[in-house]
Nucleic acid binder design. Structure first.
Length: 315
DNA sequence: AAGGAGATCAACCGCAGTGGC
DNA sequence: GGCCACTGCGGTTGATCTCCT
């Protein structure tokens, strides 16, 4: 951590900027920013920093909000499912932490990045990865363990994805059906850019083969060859959970009627307000740029019902 | 109990992308 | 087209915590 009183020590800073605080945030600063955000919502970060009476740069405020103050942040250790999901998503997306975070409700890119770089990387190094879920009731089912890593099976991913579905009343969907034809991964022709790959798909073997063309994904660890991960059968990305603040504000009404998302939502009763009442839960600052081609929940569920492997229907 | 080593994680930095003028 | 401000992202840093000897 950095010392909170490290102020203006950077010689590159001009006089104006040298007034800006750096380092750890004090509780008072947190409260200022939180109150401002809840009252005024998101806007230009430099204005926010100024108007909230913070001696911080906008960038710092943004980071603090996204990584710490955001109402919908989950706290605590990563669950096994989250772990598996991170590993799987990383095998597909590489170090695109923000995109991985967008698919993990309540988690930030920073958090996931730290988790990966400390815990997971170390585990891979030591080859001591254990992914068998303790609540995996059908653990009698044999699993393919390759190099100490258990690849995700379809039902695992389906469970994860359905968890996300059932816990979120709305989320972004981009390029699910670009143009008039169902083309889940047009981005595969473009450096594996999975930005638009939202939703749950079964990818034809031929397509998966294109993805894997000869080498492993983002080869930090050779174990992530497509075949090893079972990606020929299963190249699934859970739905994006991204949504901008503004969009969530617009959705508060809906969420208040259908809000079973993220039970451990931040609830700032000490400060006399309930954050989730202002934002609804399930708001994710990550991927704020993902604003195009979004689907409403009803439409989304209708569309999902067209996927034969989803045996639930839109209500 | 002390202190050294390694792990964790909040925060910073620099760069790229984007939009407005 | 160039410049500038702003935003978002990934990599990195470093203070603090935890464990081990």
């Amino acid at each position: 951590m950095r010392k909170p009183d490290q102020i203006g020590k950077d010689p590159r800073m001009n006089n104006n900027k040298s007034k800006l605080r750096k380092g750890l945030w004090s509780p008072e600063e947190d409260e200022k920013l939180m109150r401002y955000m809840l009252t005024n919502g998101q806007g230009c970060w430099s204005d926010i920093a100024r108007n909230a009476g913070l001696q911080r740069c906008g960038k710092s405020c943004r980071l603090r909000w996204i990584n710490y103050l955001r109402p919908d942040l989950k706290r605590g250790a990563f669950s096994l499912q989250e772990e598996e999901l991170i590993i799987h998503l990383h095998s597909i997306l590489g170090n695109r932490w923000s995109q991985i975070a967008a698919r993990l409700p309540g988690r930030t890119d920073n958090e996931i990045k730290n988790f990966w770089n400390s815990t997971l990387k170390k585990r891979f190094k030591n080859n001591t990865f254990i992914t068998t879920s303790p609540n995996d009731s059908d653990s009698s089912e044999p699993r393919d363990v390759i190099g100490g890593v258990t690849p995700l099976h379809e039902h695992d991913l389906m469970n994860m994805c359905l968890d996300t579905f059932s816990s979120s009343s709305n989320y972004s969907m981009q390029n699910l059906v670009p143009g008039s034809h169902l083309d889940p991964f047009p981005m595969l022709d473009n450096c594996y850019d999975m930005t638009g790959a939202a939703g749950i798909f079964n990818v034809p073997t031929s397509l998966a083969a294109q993805v894997g063309k000869g080498d492993e994904f983002y080869g930090d660890y050779g174990i992530f060859e497509p075949n090893n991960m079972g990606l020929e059968r299963d190249l699934s990305l859970p739905p994006l959970e991204s949504r901008s603040i503004e969009e969530n504000n617009a959705m508060v009404d809906m969420k208040s009627n259908n809000n079973h998302f993220n039970n451990d939502c931040f609830n700032n009763t000490d400060q006399g307000f309930k954050v989730e009442n202002m934002f609804g839960c399930g708001n994710h600052g990550q991927g704020e740029n993902l604003k195009i081609g979004e689907w409403d929940f009803e439409g989304l569920m209708q569309d999902l019902s067209s996927f034969p492997f989803l045996d639930f229907q839109a209500e």
